[in-house]
Design a protein around this nucleic acid. Structure first.
Lengths: 238, 238
DNA sequence: GGCTAATATTTGTATAGTTGTATAGGTCAT
DNA sequence: ATGACCTATACAACTATACAAATATTAGCC
């Protein structure tokens, strides 16, 4: 005589809690065991409800950690003068960057070509994570010509902003020369960082930034969580 | 939904980094904490990956120091005319020797017998470490008849090479009379020197070198890191 | 300079908690 | 009978935290 399945009513109740801001973006929900006790059902029934909500992008679970309220989609522009900080702030969210790794090594073939370096020239590689309101938006890996910017590593350690760090190294302004966008599937590592499932869709952009004289200063690859970001292309006066 | 366990993909990524020489033999990897941040997982997950790589002999951890890329297996010949320096250089690696202790004392029973000395005769004992590309390959303890070579201690201090030191003491050439090989387990001291785990397998060789007249000039015991060295037996024309 | 002691860093180990997955079975409406 | 729904149990994978043990680094002292 159960018109509505238990799991469905549980999902509705939790969805209402989120809609009424009882749980906010990034918050951890009670554990599955706690929810099961609270609703007086088996843990699997709660899981069924959470699975439905996850499929709708409302929540996301991290094994071993808990279930969290997912971030709302972010609009992200692509154009000649894109600055992550400004773009996110313009959308009313708080931007942040997390440094994952900073390493100097020999350039690989693509990096050397994009930056107009000789094979084997050193590049400074900056792996990081872009956040909006604490939610991960994008993974990125930027390569810079290490010989031209010997102080960039220190600058990036202080201010994780690429724009500010380059400014300290004498590049007052830079613009995006090329951008290519492709679709990929998240591998395990990317999925963890972006808090999405392995195999979930990802937007990958490959870009080269140049200074005022046209010299390439940054070769950047960025991976966006596909269902959390919408890339918008500005009119580019080529 | 994790097709591939996280730790496995992390181990693969790090293994690839080593294979592409981004981390070289003897290099220290980033700390577990840094790797955990870089891959966006808990430290224990990184440890699981490192444990797998350590089990394969790819890396080795030293508590309090870090995780290091293990040396690649070195081929080491056993035969009548073995010279450490030449053997390692022939393999394309850079040989070195580290002096641990140099001491003159009364010979014990085995040393006396091997060197054809009277009980209680003095022997010069040379404890050292053999390195290839900076990675420890073998621990050794060599005993020489002190009365026959009064200047050997000074010579060994200058040039840590046994061959060169003996040459200065009038032994232009020597050959290996006997070699015995056994397997042991590393004790704590050996493990520290060889940068392996306590209880790891060790190859021990016991050898007597004789001069052109057949007089024994060196009684040497050597402990090789079992998983880092392959002993190859040359055809010995007795 | 060299030695010692204190401090900080790094790996090793232990414990507890959380989500993911698999298996087995039971209830009920159609 | 069949399939959707729900319970029960167990284990694997991962997180979180804390502390111990070994090492590296630094400061101070002679």
């Amino acid at each position: 005589m159960t018109r509505t399945p238990l799991w469905k009513s549980i999902a509705l109740a939790l969805t209402a809690d989120i809609a009424e801001d009882r749980y906010r973006t990034g918050d951890q929900l009670p554990t599955e065991a706690q929810l099961a006790a609270k609703f007086g059902v088996n843990r699997h029934t709660v899981r069924r409800a959470l699975a439905e909500m996850a499929a709708q992008g409302l929540v996301h679970a991290r094994r071993g950690a808990g279930v969290f309220v997912a971030a709302r989609p972010t609009d992200y522009p692509i154009g000649r003068r894109v600055r992550f900080h400004q773009s996110v702030a313009a959308g009313g969210q708080t931007p942040a960057k997390q440094l994952l790794a900073l390493d100097t090594r020999a350039a690989d073939a693509r990096e050397a070509e994009a930056l107009a370096l000789a094979p084997g020239d050193p590049v400074l590689v900056y792996d990081g994570l872009s956040l909006a309101d604490g939610a991960p938006i994008a993974l990125f890996r930027s390569a810079f010509p290490a010989r031209r910017f010997p102080d960039l590593e220190a600058a990036l350690t202080k201010t994780r902003s690429v724009t500010q760090a380059l400014a300290r190294c004498g590049v007052a302004d830079y613009t995006r020369a090329t951008t290519r966008v492709t679709a990929k599937l998240a591998n395990a590592t990317q999925a963890v960082h972006l808090r999405i499932a392995e195999g979930a869709p990802i937007l990958r952009t490959v870009a080269v930034n140049v200074d005022a004289t046209g010299q390439p200063v940054e070769y950047g690859r960025t991976w966006f969580a596909g269902d959390r970001v919408t890339l918008t292309v500005e009119g580019e006066g080529g």
